[in-house]
Design a protein around this nucleic acid. Structure first.
Length: 493
RNA sequence: GGUCGGUUAACCGAGUGGCUAGGUAGCGGUCUGCAAAACCGUUUACGGCGGUUCGAAUCCGCCACCGACCUCCA
């Protein structure tokens, strides 16, 4: 199996040819959400970025195992203090429910939103709390090899020791000496040999709800550990691609690298990929900053910053219009532009179905297809793919207008091209279909349009304009075509 | 303060040495009874100052501004 795909590797800071370890198999691990509140716009970025990667690799013929975890334990409010409260537990106390009820609630919400965005389900979606045993085993290995040490019932990772043999900080460009001089002295660190050591296992305080027995204490695993344990379990000691948000690079992914490398004695991940952030007013959108808009709010328009509701495919299109390693700035203007652009694309695909072939062709479909592949192969450059597809859109509309021509085989190729890239790979879908009572509406519209046509033929424009205006009030637009058969369309609700 | 990244036209956003990305908005036109759609044409660009080069948005230096990470974050 061959590919021309180049992927930007965060570790080498270069675009590298993608060579899977065991073709035709490809293993991908992506950091999923910590499920303690609603999914917001920022979460859709990695979901869509790695959905695109998953879809493209699958399209190329690879058998992809896509693992995306759910963090449901161990993610503390404040890691440095060592006394931060578990996010899930805090929410559980606030809402007076079980921690696992919090998890269930927000996992369900996350899944619903992911489905709305038309992202494919991962092959495996493991949860940290379901892999306590694997994590404990990994800690044992780390203690045995001297990289983990126990302290008062908790276990920490010894970064200084690790750095003797390996280089801590190589992903994020940190230098340990600088970390040492920069780290703030905060109380509550007495258990650690060094302030930058991170927890592998934490002893639970008496009031802590989420707790499991271990050789060291009744407690819970550290946040970074789950990804190492679960990626090893499902993808093997070495696997192809690890993805996640750029904000996870340090310390999360750095710690993951340290743990896995220390435990396995070798590099685990071949390609690190990081998606950039969605910004709002130029600043990162994040739960901690409080400037986020949830996906449900976007879909309903129910948020003070929103001028209107935006459909899931508008959001998906919006995100695909930027390259995944660039920031993308949220605004109503930008989303409205995305909405219009997306609708234009969908309309052209509808028109494509109706095109009549000519004897000759004025378009090179093969070249267009090649350009689309080239763009994807260049580190998943979806904005460029879209720009090529819009070339196709202009062509389709011109054929409809009579200024361009396409032959039968070209037409088939063009249909396949749009189907492949727009729906299969970019993962967009037509949202206008499937509104109830469609058939009846169609019949009714036929009658109304017929009446209006009669009025027009009699030059009773007052009547015909009234019909059009009343329909407009219902969100229905009449479009008189040159050949005298009017079209109508309903704005999406 | 340290490390890293960014600054492209009204907005979003591609592009890395010579060849107008694209979407949205604006303007003019074609079509149309009007309108919408579509098509054609088109305006406002590469943060500032230097340097390298025949040629720089693209490479180098300095400056300004913005941001990310250094706590948790997708």
């Amino acid at each position: 199996m061959q590919n021309n795909l180049f992927i930007y590797n965060s570790l080498s800071k270069k675009k590298e040819a993608f060579k899977p370890i065991h073709p035709p198999f490809v293993g991908i691990y992506v950091c999923g959400p910590t499920v303690y509140s609603d999914t917001h716009l920022g979460h859709s970025r990695p979901a869509i970025t790695f959905d695109l990667l998953f879809r493209y690799l699958t399209h190329l013929g690879y058998k992809v195992r896509y693992v995306r975890n759910i963090t449901d334990v161990g993610h503390l409010e404040n890691e440095t203090l060592g006394e931060g409260e578990d996010r899930i537990e805090k929410k559980a106390r606030q809402e007076q429910i079980e921690p696992m009820e919090v998890v269930q609630k927000y996992v369900n919400a996350y899944h619903k939103n992911m489905e709305q965005l038309n992202t494919l389900s991962p092959s495996i979606e493991p949860r940290a709390a379901g892999h306590i045993i694997e994590q404990i085993e990994l800690i044992k290995t780390l203690i045995k090899s001297g990289y983990g040490y126990e302290s008062n019932g908790s276990v920490y990772f010894d970064i200084l020791k690790y750095n003797e043999k390996y280089r801590y900080g190589k992903l994020s460009g940190r230098v340990l000496d600088e970390l040492m001089s920069n780290t703030r002295n905060i109380e509550g660190q007495e258990e650690k040999r060094n302030s930058f050591d991170f927890a592998l296992w934490k002893k639970a305080s008496p009031e802590h709800l989420m707790r499991w027995p271990s050789p060291w204490s009744v407690g819970f695993p550290g946040w970074h550990l789950e990804c190492s344990a679960m990626s090893i379990k499902y993808l093997g000691e070495e696997f192809d691609i690890h993805g996640g948000g750029i904000d996870l690079q340090f310390p999360h992914h750095e710690c993951e690298i340290a743990q896995s490398t220390a435990a396995l004695g070798k590099e685990s991940v071949h390609y690190w990929m990081h998606n950039n952030m969605i910004t709002i007013n130029g600043q990162k959108m994040a739960r901690s900053i409080g400037n986020f808009i949830t996906l449900d709010q976007l879909f309903s328009g129910d948020h003070p910053a929103l001028q209107q509701a935006y459909s899931p495919m508008t959001i998906r299109f919006f995100i695909l219009q930027a390259h995944y390693r660039s920031t993308i700035d949220f605004s109503n203007e930008a989303l409205q532009a995305a909405e219009k652009g997306f609708q234009k694309l969908m309309k052209a695909i509808e028109s494509l179905k109706k095109l009549k072939p000519s004897d000759s062709s004025t378009i090179d479909v093969i070249k267009l297809k090649e350009k689309c592949y080239e763009a994807l192969d260049d580190d998943l450059n979806s904005p460029i793919v879209l720009s090529h597809l819009f070339e196709g859109v202009r062509f389709i509309n011109s054929v409809l207008d009579g200024s361009e021509k396409i032959d039968a085989s070209g037409l088939e190729s063009l249909k396949t091209l749009f189907n492949t890239f727009v729906f299969e790979i970019l993962g967009l879908k037509d949202e206008s279909a499937g509104i109830g009572d469609e058939k009846l509406t169609g019949e009714l519209m036929k009658i109304i349009i017929d009446l209006r046509q009669t009025a027009k033929n009699r030059k009773e424009f007052e009547v015909s304009d009234k019909i059009r205006k009343e329909l407009n009030n219902l969100g229905i637009t009449i479009k008189d075509r040159k050949d005298g058969t009017p079209e109508w369309e309903k704005a999406p609700l």
